[in-house]
Write a protein that binds this DNA or RNA. Structure first.
Lengths: 216, 216
DNA sequence: TTTGGTGTTATTGTCGACAATCTTTAGGTT
DNA sequence: AACCTAAAGATTGTCGACAATAACACCAAA
């Protein structure tokens, strides 16, 4: 693993968790000192951060961390609904019985840990992401996998971590996950598609509420 | 405009048109000499080429131009159907009457030039791409625009330029374009979505035929 | 002959310094 | 006082060289 990869992971985590605040300016020399490396691997990392929409660069003018907005959230989740719906249809055709069984085991595991850590949202985040990851990987479509897992999901996590995902929504999401994997196990891609779109739509509305509440 | 941007455009064109053959290995020193610049901006360009799926990089091992395959084509066009279908639905809501009129004027212009250059596919390519670009931009969804215009379309062009787009399909595509913009003008997003999916599906089958024919 | 190890070679990753560009600030003019 | 201009400062883009890693060839042993 290269130095650019390491610093990329660190900066990704820092931006997603708000350690580097949204909307703040990125200074290459400052970050280079902070992570104790040259600007070459740092610029490589910045290029990848731009790729996953965590920063915005203007030639000869610098880079800024993205700002979270209601319009951005809606645009992002419009795409998610469409792409993850497609992922469900493909997964219903492509996933092996073994892979489906693994996801079901994963969900059971989430359910038990969720009871213990009621209200603590971070682990739920990771679990939720993990579920979506599995379905997307199950589509076996490399371009779809790349877009969702490598380019869009860090921004999704940023919205969820910074704006929170709490209330009764947390426990309800598990049931929705169960229903989706059940439809996939039945090889009913259409139903899985529909359920996933509703699932993502509900998640969007939940974050939207937080967003309008906070900035009001 | 920076030097990395210039060399990026040149290499993109070279790969899309097969000047740098599909599947060939990329040598950083060689390309640096060939385009007469340092490796720093070249690596920046390579990073963006990877982003639009024209090359594949392995850490510490180099980069290769992608190889065109039937599976790759199908995966790519599955995504296109979904994303451009969404673009049509959004465009039917978001495009202004002026923008719609512009696209119609564009189509009329294509029709007249197409009659003149019957069979010459390259201009048709540009025209077809232009039409799709307009619809995508009309969706006003920045993430959707980024994915389709910046990341996927160079690969689409590569398939079409290298595997050809000929026969009666060329003229038929114009009628399909007409029908799509007509549906958008009527603010019928559902219909535009359906027509676009069929349009892209037909285009895929056409290239698929060429692909199976060539490698057989 | 095939397989495993080793040395060589070439490529990629990284570094520090220089050049080009933009932002900011100070100054002068209307 | 407001606005345009210009110089200073800082930041980004680019360069050539060095270090680390991986591919390759060669040789030895089974």
């Amino acid at each position: 693993m290269t130095a650019a990869d390491r610093v990329l992971l660190e900066i990704q985590r820092a931006i997603v968790e708000g350690d580097i605040p949204a909307g703040s300016k990125i200074s290459e020399p400052e970050l280079a000192r902070r992570f104790d490396l040259s600007r070459a691997p740092l610029r490589e990392a910045l290029a990848r951060l731009e790729r996953c929409h965590l920063i915005e660069r203007i030639p000869n003018a610098g880079a800024r961390v993205v700002t979270l907005s209601k319009e951005g959230l809606i645009s992002l989740y419009q795409l998610r609904e469409e792409l993850e719906g497609l992922a469900c249809r493909l997964a219903a055709e492509q996933m092996t019985d073994a892979e489906i069984a693994e996801v079901r085991a994963l969900l059971d595991q989430h359910l038990s840990t969720q009871r213990v850590r009621e209200g603590e949202s971070y682990y739920q985040e990771a679990g939720d992401l993990d579920f979506h990851y599995r379905i997307i990987l199950g589509s076996k479509n490399p371009y779809l996998i790349n877009i969702l897992c490598d380019e869009l999901y860090f921004l999704v996590r940023m919205y969820r971590v910074q704006l929170g995902m709490n209330g009764p929504r947390v426990s309800r999401a598990f049931d929705e996950h169960k229903a989706i994997i059940h439809a996939i196990a039945n090889r009913d891609g259409e139903l899985a598609d529909l359920l996933m779109r509703r699932h993502i739509g509900a998640s969007r509305r939940n974050i939207e509420l937080q967003l309008t509440g906070n900035q009001a």
